[in-house]
Amino acid sequence: MAVLEATGPVRFEAWPWPPVDSRGGLGPEALASAFPVGPEDLAVVDGPQALALPGARVREAERLLRAPGRTPDVLPLPGGPFQGFVRGSVLLFAALRGGQGAAPLLDVDTPEPGQARLFEAFPGATWRRMAVEKLGRKGSPGGRAQRQALLEAEGLRFAPGARPTHDQLDAALCAWLGRLTRTAPERLHAVGTPLWVDEAGALREGRILDLREPSLSR
């Protein structure tokens, strides 16, 4: 996890996932306790916030942004590629929205990005939007250096001599997008179908934060 301070410094923290319960599940109380979001905190998660429309195999936002992980219309069981990731992320969003901190989500809790405190991002798409030249592989030293330079050009500051991992850089990018919802919302675009709650109480679809085309930000 990346924590971005108002003046630009970035620090990284590791918050382990809670153990599964006796039935092999992740309860909302355990998730909310493991990932505490305070009443003044703003969280941006690199993972799906909701299920697809009934009958759909992928969310519209994921299709538009070419996300490799596809969220179906039912909560997947762990086992296959991305299934545990998708399941855990959807459960985490529900837990953070309904937990003690009650972090409001865009569309279902407020129509204004500046009032929401819980968002979804897909760093892979945003890196492509930011790049002025082809980026190296995200795990390579050169690719990491390119991504770090892009964030530093936006005012983020890392520890001297540090070379964050690609996961840490993705987390820092998410934190920066969250800050833009307060400091420069005109630079952002929420991609996809607005989030809604079905009759069973499940969150469906949901928009992903991304940067606007430069010509559309003016």
Rank of each mutant, 00 (worst) to 15 (best):
D107H: 14
R212M: 02
R63M: 08
G80H: 07
L188I: 06
V44M: 08
A67N: 02
Q100C: 02
P48D: 00
R179H: 08
R57Q: 07
L64C: 04
G201T: 04
P68M: 03
R97K: 04
Q83D: 01
L173K: 10
V44Q: 01
L77I: 11
G25T: 15
V37H: 10
E120A: 11
C174R: 03
R66N: 07
E213Q: 14
W176S: 00
G25C: 11
V191E: 13
D167K: 14
R63F: 15
Q168I: 11
G98L: 14
F122H: 15
W127F: 12
L156I: 13
A116W: 02
A162R: 11
E199A: 15
G80F: 12
G142A: 14
L105E: 00
D167S: 08
A149C: 01
A32E: 02
P19R: 12
A125T: 05
P9R: 07
P104C: 09
G55Q: 02
G88M: 06
R182Y: 11
E112F: 14
P36G: 11
A145V: 07
V191P: 05
R187C: 06
R179W: 14
V3A: 12
L118P: 03
G143C: 11
A94R: 15
L177Q: 01
P185T: 04
D170P: 05
V20N: 06
A200Q: 09
P16G: 08
L4I: 07
L151E: 00
R179Q: 15
P123I: 10
R147P: 08
T126R: 07
G192N: 10
G38V: 13
G99P: 00
S140K: 07
S22E: 13
A202I: 09
A131C: 05
T183A: 11
R144E: 10
L26E: 08
A67Q: 08
A61G: 13
L203S: 01
R129W: 09
G101W: 12
L151F: 06
S89T: 05
L65Q: 02
L150G: 04
G80Q: 13
H189P: 04
R187Y: 10
P111K: 09
R66P: 00
S89E: 00
V37D: 00
